[in-house]
């Protein structure tokens, strides 16, 4: 929304102490964006596989580097967080867990689940 008022706009993000629910909402949006980027990564992996050994090797080389692994780690966390928080949203959609206490508890549960699943995935693979 553009600001064409001559009067000042009162501060918002600059002064608001965002509650946990709001921070997790931002994280949901951010991980959603990461998943979109991750899809491009998946396309790259598939395309590299289809275009022969040398392209596959260079793709594999990148993903095996520390930076590539960090990217995949971030993608794994994003996938699990977005998935778990999506389930939280489904509960909200049927009207469950929308009181402040419930939303806080489910928020902490979702963060914990995403971290545990991410670590487990990297330990197993």
């Amino acid at each position: 929304m553009s600001w064409d008022d001559k009067r000042p706009m009162s501060p918002h993000l600059q002064v608001y102490k965002l509650p946990l629910t709001a921070k997790l909402s931002i994280l949901h949006r951010a991980t959603g964006a990461v998943l979109f980027m991750g899809l491009l990564l998946m396309v790259w992996v598939l395309a590299a596989g289809a275009s022969g050994a040398t392209t596959w090797q260079s793709m594999h080389g990148f993903l095996s580097s520390w930076f590539g692994k960090l990217t995949l780690f971030g993608f794994t966390f994003s996938l699990y967080y977005h998935f778990c928080n999506g389930i939280r949203h489904l509960f909200w959609d049927i009207g469950k867990g929308l009181d402040l206490e419930g939303a806080h508890k489910s928020g902490i549960a979702v963060i914990a689940a995403a971290i545990i699943l991410t670590v487990l995935t990297w330990l197993i693979t």
Partner: peptide, 9 residues
Amino acid sequence: CHTIMNCTE
């Protein structure tokens, strides 16, 4: 509304 819940807080 994306259920940010600032309103309820």
